[in-house]
């Protein structure tokens, strides 16, 4: 993955690596972080607004409003992805649009839209979790481990 971590076998490679790095356009980290902060913050504020909306007009408490909020955010993400706006927001916002749950929705929905030409079963069905699958896998597995350890500690460890 990261170039830095890889051992470059020969001296020529190392030399070239230095030369190439020097010429490489640096990623504007500070600017990207500011944009990520802005976009991420706005998305979370919209989430907050939707949460209050559900609490105010429907019978949801602060705790239970989370679920419909997430669903609504993913719905909005579908619209933005479908109309081809989300990838443009993402080019601007970077992690700001990838980290919120809308980014998860975008990963699923963009893959689904992309592969509809291969049919609904093999294309959409088979590729939907191409990108988001790893999030579900690692989320589920780590949650399993964490919950297992905690349950065992509580039950038998007397914590």
């Amino acid at each position: 993955m990261a170039n830095e971590q890889r051992k470059l076998q020969t001296k020529i490679m190392q030399e070239y690596y230095q030369l190439e790095k020097k010429n490489e356009t640096k990623r504007p980290v500070v600017q990207n972080c500011l944009r990520a902060f802005l976009v991420g913050g706005i998305i979370c504020s919209i989430g907050q607004a939707i949460q209050f909306f559900y609490m105010y007009f429907f019978h949801f408490t602060q705790q239970t409003a989370g679920n419909p909020t997430v669903a609504t955010m993913i719905f909005l993400s579908m619209l933005l992805t479908g109309f081809g706006v989300y990838d443009r927001i993402a080019q601007f916002g970077g992690a700001g649009s990838a980290v919120p749950v809308t980014g998860f929705g975008n990963a699923v929905i963009s893959a689904a839209i992309e592969h509809r030409t291969e049919g609904f079963v093999l294309g959409v069905g088979g590729n939907m979790f191409k990108l988001a699958g790893s999030v579900i896998l690692f989320g589920t597995f780590s949650a399993f481990v964490v919950a297992l350890i905690k349950t065992i500690l509580i039950k038998w460890g007397g914590f």
């Binding site: 980290v29 972080c33 990520a36 902060f37 706005i42 979370c44 970077g94 700001g96 980290v99």
Partner: peptide, 18 residues
């Protein structure tokens, strides 16, 4: 919500870029 959400995204951006 804005500040904390934004900061989490900044951490993500650092993981991307750095």
């Amino acid at each position: 919500a804005f500040v904390i959400g934004g900061l989490i995204c900044v951490i993500g951006q650092i993981m991307f870029d750095v």
